[in-house]
């Protein structure tokens, strides 16, 4: 499982944890999150500013 960081605000998406409150189950891989998903903290689009891989 990997972690991804929003390049704009630093929000970390941890695949192992997911975002259950927002309907993204624990274990959801980054590739499987819809393209219209937005960073929950600053609102940048998934496709625009790319989350960067911070840990494997």
């Amino acid at each position: 499982m990997r972690k991804w960081e929003c390049v704009v605000c630093g929000f970390i998406y941890d695949e192992a944890v997911g975002m259950p409150e927002d309907g993204i189950a624990a274990g959801t891989r980054w590739e499987d999150i819809p393209e219209n998903w937005e960073c929950p903290e600053c609102g940048v689009a998934k496709a625009d500013f790319e989350m960067v891989l911070v840990a494997a």
Partner: peptide
Amino acid sequence: PYVMPIMH
């Protein structure tokens, strides 16, 4: 003056 309003 925050990012989220700018995105919207």
